[in-house]
């Protein structure tokens, strides 16, 4: 299916840089804390220091800027909409006015400021999350999430099962995409028509794809269950891992650096202009 061709799953770029070697839990926590700061702050100095920090991380990780730019592509439209909305519909002191027929269109100073700030926030937000997913493999991510969720076992959240379900689901998406493609071609060769007629006919034409897709999914579930059962899988208890998550000196230094940027920016926001 053409629609499925552009979907890339997991943008992880393998590497052995400092950033790659950091503990995924620490990375998630730092990105999360910095993102909160990104949304609280109003000043350009904080946004600028955040950007500088991200640039440093990009340099250290050795990831080519092309990947980052590719990650930013889906939000161009959103950024443009945000800018236009803020520029033209904000109230405040007008810096540019134009009468078209009976409507006055004006751009306000406040609108320009808030628009640019919002656009910068959006871009930085996507920049930081894509840095996280570019340098952390999906397996590491789910491992870290399992680890972060473990304390919640007390209130009945099955951390291990949740993490395992997520990694199984993630792992099967590419497989199912390929199978959907095959089913699509197979049904087409039997004369099925897709995407024609009114909405009801279009919905009906999905059935010859959906039913085999579900049957395939259940078949995979069955095979996987047998495979895991025969390898004596018995839940998360007493499971050992090949790669243990470990916080090292590297993570401490990274936390220290991020903390410095955070405190510095907050200090500037409160006391301002030195």
């Amino acid at each position: 299916m053409n629609l499925l061709k552009d979907i890339t799953i997991g943008q992880y770029v393998p590497g052995n840089s400092i950033i790659h070697r950091m503990d995924p839990r620490v990375k998630i926590a730092l990105v999360f804390i910095l993102m909160i700061q990104l949304f609280i702050t109003e000043s350009w100095v904080s946004l600028g220091s955040y950007f500088a920090l991200l640039l440093l991380v990009t340099l250290l990780s050795g990831i080519s800027p092309g990947y980052i730019l590719k990650g930013l592509r889906p939000i161009i439209f959103l950024v443009l909409i945000t800018l236009i909305f803020n520029f033209f519909f904000s109230k405040g002191d007008a810096i540019w006015q134009q009468r078209i027929f009976s409507i006055t269109i004006s751009i306000t100073q406040q609108g320009v400021q808030s628009g640019l700030r919002m656009a910068a926030r959006l871009i930085l937000l996507v920049y930081s999350t894509s840095l996280l997913t570019l340098t952390t493999s999906p397996i590491q991510l789910t491992d870290a999430i399992e680890n972060i969720l473990t304390p919640f076992k007390v209130i009945g959240i099955p951390a291990h099962e949740l993490a395992m379900m997520m990694s199984i689901a993630l792992r099967f998406i590419p497989v199912l995409i390929e199978e959907t493609d095959k089913i699509f071609k197979a049904q087409k060769s039997r004369g099925a028509r897709f995407g024609r007629g009114n909405i009801i006919q279009k919905a009906k034409s999905l059935l010859p794809i959906l039913v085999p897709l579900f049957v395939h999914a259940f078949k995979h579930a069955e095979d996987l269950a047998v495979a895991m059962e025969s390898r004596c899988y018995r839940g998360g208890e007493r499971r050992t891992r090949l790669k243990q998550l470990r916080v090292t000196g590297l993570d401490c230094w990274a936390t220290l650096l991020c903390g410095l940027v955070l405190v510095g920016a907050a200090w500037w926001d409160f006391y301002g202009k030195l």
């Binding site: 379900m165 897709l213 999914a217």
Partner: peptide, 25 residues
């Protein structure tokens, strides 16, 4: 008993996988 529990977990995962796939379109 354990077999059914495991199978249930895997079926949930696979259905979630299909759901994610359909959500992308």
């Amino acid at each position: 008993r354990s077999n059914n529990g495991l199978k249930r977990i895997i079926q949930i995962s696979l259905l979630a996988s299909v759901a994610t796939l359909l959500m992308l379109i």
